[in-house]
């Protein structure tokens, strides 16, 4: 299940509030990274808030996902696949990598609230406000999906860097 419109709106508002306050996009992203570091560090304490709104999970994982097969992730979202099944399809399809610094947070959320983890992926990779920091996959990486969506996403990342 993808996040509700309210959660998406809240996530977008949180992200854009950082970008709006900064004097440049790069600075806004830097501030967001600092904020997301702090949230990841206290992710366990944040679980109740994340249960209320997965937007907090989205912000905590801001920039921490690297889409390898974005079209698969978008298809899972479009098909409204249940969170656990979506995460399993992403894992078996090797459609996603997570920043090493966020792996502990990934494991925690996977165990405690897989719905919020799937929401965090959706918010970061499928919502426009979040697409500025998806890291580019290196050319020598395996299984890179060449579809247009992914290209768009990577271009967004290039813009941000």
């Amino acid at each position: 299940m993808i996040p509700s419109n309210a959660a998406i709106a809240e996530y977008e508002e949180q992200v854009t509030s950082f970008l709006r306050r900064a004097s440049s996009k790069a600075e806004g992203v830097a501030a967001l990274n600092q904020h997301s570091n702090a949230l990841l560090k206290d992710l366990r304490a944040l679980l109740p808030a994340i249960k209320e709104s997965p937007a907090y999970a989205g912000v905590a994982f801001y920039g921490r996902f690297q889409a390898v097969n974005l079209s698969l992730i978008k298809k899972l979202a479009a098909d409204n696949v249940a969170a656990v099944a979506a995460l399993e399809a992403i894992r078996t399809g090797k459609a996603l990598r997570v920043a090493a610094s966020a792996k502990v947070g990934w494991d925690l959320l996977f165990k405690e609230n897989p719905g919020a983890l799937w929401a965090a992926i959706y918010l970061n990779l499928c919502v426009k406000a979040a697409s500025v920091r998806v890291a580019a996959v290196r050319e020598d990486d395996d299984e890179v999906d060449e579809d247009q969506d992914n290209d768009d996403q990577l271009e967004d990342d290039d813009d941000a860097n």
Binding site: A26, A30, N33, K94, V98, A99, K103, W106
Partner: peptide, 12 residues
Amino acid sequence: AVETAEEDFVDI
């Protein structure tokens, strides 16, 4: 931002 962008990504 630059420092974070250079961090390693791992398979899940």
